[in-house]
Simulated assay, not measured.
Amino acid sequence: MDIKDFETFANKIKVRNIENEDVEVVNYSPLVMMGKGRQGAVFQYSDDICIKVFGNEEDCEREHYALSLGQHTDLFPKVYAKGPLFIAMEIIKGVDLREYLQSQPLTEELSLKLIDLLITFKEIGYERIDHHKRQIFILPEGNLKVIDVARTVWRDRVYPYPRKLLTSLGKENKETFLSHVQALHPELYSEWTHFIEMEEQARQICQKIMNESTDKGKLKDKSKKLLTTNDETVYSNQLESLVHKVFKEEWVKAMLVKGYDPDKVMDIIDEHIEKKMMQENKILQEKKMMQEKKMTQDKASKGNREQDSVQTKEVDKNKNNKKDRYPDKEDFYRSRGNDRIFQSGGFYGVRNERYREFPIKEKDDNGNNYGRKGKKYRR
């Protein structure tokens, strides 16, 4: 079996990938196409050997790597040769699980073989441990083999349970398969059903979010709370933290190149930064104490000034008190009443201290009053 023969036929077959569709094939070789999919097309080379031609080298490398991981098992077709865009491998002679279940029931024995298949996937290092039923073949002797394993490796995100297999089985066969899993391993059944429920809840949440309308104007106003540059203190702390983080990461990279232990380097950096922050906090605390002390002194000074002002007002008030100004005049009163005649018979004016004596008002023979300001004023 010469690899050049495979290359000769593969070079006469052109395969082009189409997004979300099966590949487009142009065949100038005498080989008959057996089928095609998203990554490539399969052509019969002999009764036992086929050539799978890919649309790009990455898919070819991926599938060859996945097949090589399981060559020591009976679960995968045997690989004979590989080129940049083709793989020559064994032809699987059997019926795929999709066609089988159309006429046959899913027995407990078949379910156990499917579980064993998933275990093999896990043991050889596949990231995705499930497979579609059309890619699983049942041989005449009852063994299982799988094809199209390129998507089982080099995956960033995978389902934590055999979602593709369960979904492809259909509702009735899915329940049957899960009942067989529950009988064999209740804990595994509980874990798988848990992830199924979480997936359903995630789907419901996604639909709710997609159907809801968001008030962008209101959200824009609320998003101002995330700003840090408008507060000088917060901005300073955030910027300082960012610089420390970048410094730490870059310093660790530099030390790794020199062969130092990264954990020790990080501990030393953390200790240095912690000391620095403690010193800065101490300085800030001292500044804060000085400001509080100054505020207390200013407050006390203000209180003293207010007290002095009150005392000054009291003094000024006392100065206007005539009893204090004229303590020797016992019967002095300042009055605005109509009756300005006092018991002592004396009156002391405001602007001067001339003594004037006013007799008690009397009536003359004609009945006229001799008032203080009357026409008949008597001294």
Rank of each mutant, 00 (worst) to 15 (best):
Q44P: 04
L184M: 07
E197Y: 07
S344A: 08
V246T: 14
I205G: 12
G374Y: 06
Y28N: 15
K264L: 07
E249H: 08
F9K: 05
H131Y: 07
V158P: 06
R356M: 15
D59W: 02
F9C: 04
D148W: 03
E127S: 07
G125K: 07
L112H: 03
K253N: 15
P162N: 05
Q238M: 11
R155T: 08
N352L: 04
K276E: 01
D328K: 08
D308N: 14
V26T: 08
E99T: 04
K264A: 03
Q343H: 02
L85V: 03
E286P: 01
I91E: 00
P30Y: 05
V310L: 15
D5T: 01
L114M: 15
K145Q: 10
N320A: 09
L166M: 14
G374A: 14
K361N: 12
K317H: 10
Q201W: 04
I138E: 03
D130E: 15
Q71M: 09
D308I: 13
S301H: 10
K222A: 03
E250A: 12
D221N: 15
D263I: 07
L112F: 10
P359R: 03
Y260S: 11
L219K: 14
V32A: 07
G55M: 11
M1Y: 11
S103Y: 14
D22L: 11
S179V: 00
E61L: 00
D148L: 05
K361V: 14
Q182L: 08
G40Q: 01
L188G: 00
E175Q: 13
P160A: 09
M255E: 00
G349Q: 06
A300T: 08
